[in-house]
Design a protein around this nucleic acid. Structure first.
Lengths: 227, 227
DNA sequence: GATAACACTGAACAGACGTTCAGTCAAATT
DNA sequence: AATTTGACTGAACGTCTGTTCAGTGTTATC
């Protein structure tokens, strides 16, 4: 029984270390979402993670570093979400639909996570490190959306500025996130997706307009129902 | 010379009181933009406003109240901006254009102000008062945009969901604000306005598309040049 | 011109904050 | 089995926080 152990309880030292590290990051997200950036405290984080006060500094050296690592975790999670989403479909049109689907998937698009995103964005101007971390992630996402729009415009023979179209789509999804944050009672996932589809249908009617419209919304929603 | 005094230096007590009150709110905006919500301190605010430490509590009772009043000031300033903008034009189309123009006017749409907006939004989930203040303002704005879209859709005979169209436009402007905050070097006012115009042109082609497209952008920009 | 009102000051206070570190104990190594 | 390693604890620290309040000087009132 030297190396044998229960499957769900990692006992090796490095596994355990990484586990509590993730636990601390998760607790940080919880605390920021619950109390806001200004009232986020290492005492609260360690309490929510069920560890001692001093452990955060042991793992992350300082509060600021913990925050940066939390932001990195968020961006990586988001990147993984959309990059997984576009891996399946073949056509640019279907990839774009998958991207929208991923953007409103409950895993990344829920009020708790979005509150944390906005908290970091609000601090970004005064802490350039946050800006840097976000810029890298946003840049990759923006480029992907733009490439898809370019391809759709080219293949469909649309006379639209694809870069502008891509920027518009990204803005709409960001704005919808804000609506979930600020007016959660009137936010509905299906309406959010319809807002995006309406935009795409207006710009690329041959690809997104018509009988498939409602069908698409439906299909997108069905895949989301788990949460 | 009983009541006579220099025009630019208010000397009556209530005038002076209101002046320093506004000074404190302005200083709060400055500090949040410069240091972020988490590092905003009454000591910094009073220092930037050139008043003593204890004065904030004299005027606003508590730090939290100062923040609420600052948010109220921001929402009121924004409301005044767009409501002044739509007062001039006659047609719904021109009102909508004026609304967009106002949304990107340097007076309300600059990186400092937007950083503060996002700071408050990031805290809104944990402080319902912020949510309440914003909800009222956003509700009025949303309704106005929707009414304009409804009128354009009806008069132009467009077969679009006007509510959805209005929501999309609001989201685009919000998203563009985020771009100014997070990627200021690549943000350009003319591109932002074009992004909105492209959206409107796609939904209401007869009103926003065609030869006037570039002309409109130009006209909008000319009015903005002062800043 | 005397009195009252009041915007404003700045030192003082208690509490909470991030950070440090000597000590602990279980897991890895020998 | 003995030893070393290192993740983890929790009390202690200096600092900075929002808030209070007795005192001050100017403005308004009588």
């Amino acid at each position: 029984m030297a190396k044998a152990r229960k499957a769900d309880a990692p006992t090796t030292r490095i596994e355990k270390k990484e586990a509590t590290r993730q636990q601390l990051i998760a607790a940080t997200v919880e605390v920021i979402a619950a109390d806001g950036f200004a009232d986020m405290t290492l005492a609260k984080v360690s309490q929510r993670a069920n560890v001692s006060r001093g452990l955060v500094n042991f793992h992350f050296t300082s509060k600021e570093r913990l925050l940066v690592e939390t932001l990195r975790h968020l961006t990586e999670e988001y990147r993984a979400s959309w990059s997984r989403a576009i891996a399946g479909p073949r056509t640019a049109r279907d990839k774009l639909l998958a991207l929208i689907r991923a953007d409103f998937s409950p895993r990344v698009c829920n009020r708790k996570k979005i509150a944390v995103w906005y908290a970091f964005w609000g601090e970004a101007k005064s802490r350039p490190t946050y800006l840097e971390v976000c810029a890298k992630a946003d840049g990759a996402f923006a480029q992907t959306v733009e490439e898809l729009c370019v391809e759709i415009a080219r293949e469909g023979g649309y006379a639209v500025d694809a870069a502008l179209a891509a920027r518009g789509l990204r803005c709409i999804t960001d704005g919808l996130w804000l609506e979930l944050l600020m007016a959660p009672q009137q936010f509905r996932r299906d309406i959010a997706i319809r807002t995006c589809l309406q935009y795409l249908a207006a710009l690329f009617p041959n690809d997104f307009l018509g009988s498939e419209y409602d069908h698409l919304t439906q299909a997108v929603l069905e895949r989301e129902t788990p949460a």
